[in-house]
Structures are given as C-alpha cells and as structure tokens.
Design a protein around this nucleic acid. Structure first.
Lengths: 182, 182
DNA sequence: TTGAAGAAAGGAATCTCATTCGGAGCAATT
DNA sequence: AATTGCTCCGAATGAGATTCCTTTCTTCAA
C-alpha cells in the first residue's frame, strides 16, 4: 500500500504549475478509487515502474493535487443513517463566521456559500430525525439565521469524492455568438 | 500504512450486529481523517497493540463500517474548480433510472432522491460554467426532467467524508409531549 | 549537427511496517 | 471449578515502500 502521507522529500524542486499528463491522470484516477493499491500494481496499470509512480505520487501530494488519504465510512453502518441538505437563509453578509462554528459538529460534513435563492448550504449526516431537529435548533439559535429549508435524503444512488477525469465533451458546446459561423 | 484493502481473512466468523465500542470509534475517527497512519501509531493513539488494531480494522471492513480507502483529490488543483448543486424536478416516478446514467460522468459526484420541493439532488464538479451548462443540457435531454435549479458554490468552508463521532446532545431534545413532565 | 544539462525512468538494495502465529488473560457458560 | 470463546500482546516473517544509482530522453546552446 503506498504511503501517501509520510514521504516529504521530492527529488527535484517543487513545481507548482505543471499540467497533469496522462500518467498523472491515470494515477489520480486509480487512487481516487482505491488508495490501497501497491505502487507496483499502480505502476503496471499506468505503464510505469514502482519508483516512477512513487515519484509522481509524491509530487501530486506536494503540489496539492492529492489532499490526503482517508477511510470512507458508511453512514448507516456507523450509526448515522440520516442524511439531509439544509439551505440556510441568513441576514447580513459576512455572518458566515457564525455558521462555521458548526464545523465542530461531526454531523456537519459540508458548508458552502452558494449563489441562488439561498445563502448557505449544509450537508448533514446524523443519527436520527430528532438529531436533525436538534441541529436545526442550533442553527436558529444563531442571530443571523432567518430561515432554513431541509431536503431529507430518501435514497443515495451515488456518493463519491472528486474524480480525476474530465469530460471534455461537456465544454464543446458552441458559443451562442458563434452560431453564424456555424 | 495499514493495508485496508487486501486483507480478507478475519480470525473469527464475521459478526454483523456488533455495536461499535470506544476503541472502534476511535480507530474509525482516526482513519476517516488519515488512512495513512501505521497500525503502530493507530494502536498507540487508541491504546491497543498493532495486531489488535489490525484485527479490528479487518472486522470494521468486513462488516461494512469502512467502505474503502481513497485519495481525496483537490477539485481546483485537478482542473475542476466549478462546484454546484443541482435540484431536479422530474415528472413521473421511478424515472430516476434515467438520471442514474449520469453517474457515468466523472463530474457527477452525488445523486440523491430527496423529500422536499424537489425530486433529485445532484452534486456536480466540473471544469467551468460552460461544462455545467453542457451537463444541464444533458439533463434537459431526458424526457422526465421538467425543471432544474442550480446552486453554484462560491466558497467551500468545509467538505469531508462521514465522520465517526456522534453528538449525543443533538438527540437530547425533550419530546414535546413530555413538556408537562419536564 | 553536436555537446551539455536537466528531468525522469528503471533496477537493485535496504529498511520500515503490515501480517501472521502462538500463547496468555478474561468473561461467560455449564 | 472447568471449559469455551474471544481478544489481547510479543515476537517472527515477509511484503512492499523507499532510496540510491545508472541510463535514457529531451531540450537548449554553441
């Protein structure tokens, strides 16, 4: 199993602005799916030797492409079968600091500020609907929180961390201004 | 680095319905944060020996508490700086099968069916707003998709995988019917 | 065109750590 | 009190991460 954590030394100087090549993409793709692969196995899949892959992974970590390696826990199996997304409408601006205090709760998995008909968006996973209620109570205790809308998840069909691949076709849509040049 | 992947043999028979004890919680908590810890380090933090921790991790995997081990990629650093949540209103029921085809796209990270004023909720990370537009185009190409609302993420303050800890206090809220006895 | 320099890959050696094995402690059951 | 089952620990083993060194390829300059 590759040690994605402890290796600090990179043979050459840290280069930030190097575009990912096909090897890097492949390595990232595999590791995003299963970080437990050995460097040898990873190398054989990418067409490189183990030391070469090792070198690249070190660089991918050093340049921030890989943020870390984590065990993915199963919510229901670990006592938190209740998943919900909570939209928060708050008054004022820069009051988000208050919401950040919620990051202390292990039930809160994501906090984003968004554009749209709401200010903040939370992803929350907790033990029960009662726990969600308790969390909403804490939310409303904040002075700046005006309203919330909760979307309780009924079924999860897909849930994964960021993937390495990019679908080029999504950007191939022609610019409306280019219609004339068709 | 613990190999959370390849070990198959568990010394005793697989037991499904064993409640997590304090050791398990601690181990899960550490691994959810950093799966690159050695068993020795993990053991010293949990107050167990390396083989004991190893045994428990095997069981946690075998019983589905740990779903896997992955490298967490950085969206912007890997070419996908654009994050959005998309609410999908669709006609009919059981038409979700169509949406599941979107799981093929690496840009789609989550697909949930939810209760609330919308049917499905997608988490999407892509290269640009144009790519999001391309993805919405694919959405509207589906016969059952009636409308969508997109929440484009401006800032992400917290984003992590399911955590092991549970905040007991959230469930301590007294039942409204118990007010008289309060 | 040739030479030099830098970057990266592969092979082999080393060394850390995952993994296994056997035995001991402890609790529950009979 | 004895037995059974479970989980722990310590030591031994082996796999694989990590390092070192050499070679190759590319790039830039003369």
């Amino acid at each position: 199993m590759p040690n994605l954590e402890k290796t600090e030394t990179v043979r050459d100087k840290a280069q930030e602005a190097r575009p990912l090549d096909a090897f890097d993409r492949r390595i990232l793709g595999e590791l995003a799916q299963d970080a437990g692969l050995s460097y040898a196995e990873l190398g054989s899949r990418a067409g490189l030797s183990a030391p070469a892959v090792h070198e690249r992974v070190k660089r991918l970590r050093a340049t921030g492409r890989i943020r870390g390696t984590v065990a993915v826990l199963d919510g229901p199996a670990t006592g938190k079968p209740f998943l919900a997304f909570v939209h928060v409408d708050s008054t004022g601006w820069g009051k988000t600091q208050e919401l950040l205090a919620l990051a202390e709760l292990p039930e809160v998995e994501e906090i984003h500020s968004v554009a749209g008909d709401t200010c903040m968006l939370l992803k929350v996973r907790c033990a029960s609907s009662r726990a969600l209620e308790g969390l909403l109570a804490r939310l409303y205790a904040l002075p700046s929180v005006k309203a919330t809308r909760s979307y309780v998840v009924l079924s999860t069909f897909l849930e994964r961390t960021p993937q390495a691949e990019i679908t080029e076709a999504l950007e191939e849509k022609r610019n409306p201004l280019d219609i004339a040049t068709g």
